[in-house]
Design a protein around this nucleic acid. Structure first.
Lengths: 144, 144
DNA sequence: CTTGACTCCGTACCTAGGTACGGGGCGTAC
DNA sequence: GTACGCCCCGTACCTAGGTACGGAGTCAAG
């Protein structure tokens, strides 16, 4: 009754839906603590390790890099609420920049396509050759 | 008056605003033709090479990978208009997917932040631990 | 006792798009 | 004639986030 569930690395990986190699990789990256070992040398994990691993995956899905996740986990303030909030706030900004950049690309691409559709054909390729990409997208979505 | 401007690799690179190494790299990737060499072995470029290099850069700025650019340049139809248009159309789609994915991330991130702001603090980190990321963003921007 | 699944470890490899290094040759201006 | 800048080449390295390989040890079932 003491240690209800002991997991091997494979079980942990399945529980979190990741590859075994990924678990070892995360351990190397210090995103997971090095677990105690059985006599055999096998890693033995507990339920909290599943939580930890899922935290890492969710943070990654939220757009944080493994580097940033590491800093959150082992930052000076040991991952305090304010740290997380600040990081999320910052991430939101970079995300907005990325979106805007993609939207600008999209805009230029659509311009190109419109000219291709309307034009007599031959000009289309020349357009990429000759037009400078200086279209400012739509006037910035402004999504706070 | 015959060969008005002969460019060295450095001059070409400067003209297109890229690194010399990048030019050599593009030649390896077959995005640029191997140019004639001077007696010294130096590459000698003409003005059309500047156009070609700028084409590659612009296509890249439009979101095409070097792989795709290569296919456009040396595709079966030797980079016909329809090829370019089709590629642009396809690229537009993947771009939309990327934007939507980012917007979903953004949405989840903002949710997190709102809970962080409104909550009593301590819950915030736990949230990342425990909430599943299953928010469908805003109902899909629908930008044709 | 053997088979098959699982684990250990270190190291190499992958994608994309370059950048850097090092030893050597050319070109020109003082 | 030599110093400085530019060019040649091949190869190694970089970021990010893993994935794959290979030889060896382990565990549970039949």
């Amino acid at each position: 009754m003491s240690d209800v569930k002991e997991l091997t690395i494979g079980a942990l990986a399945r529980a979190a839906g990741v590859n075994v190699e990924t678990v070892r990789y995360y351990e190397r990256r210090q995103l997971l603590d090095a677990p105690p070992r059985a006599q055999s040398g096998y890693r033995t994990y507990g339920p909290s390790d599943v939580d930890r691993l899922q935290f890492v995956r969710r943070a990654k899905d939220l757009g944080f890099t493994l580097q940033e996740i590491g800093e959150l986990l082992h930052g000076d303030g040991l991952g305090s609420t304010t740290d997380v909030a600040a990081a999320a706030q910052a991430k939101l900004l970079t995300l907005d920049h990325e979106v805007q950049s993609l939207m600008e690309q999209r805009c230029r691409l659509r311009q190109l396509l419109q000219i291709c559709d309307h034009g007599d054909g031959q000009d289309c390729v020349a357009l990429i050759f000759e037009t400078a990409p200086r279209i400012p997208a739509s006037p910035t979505p402004e999504i706070p």
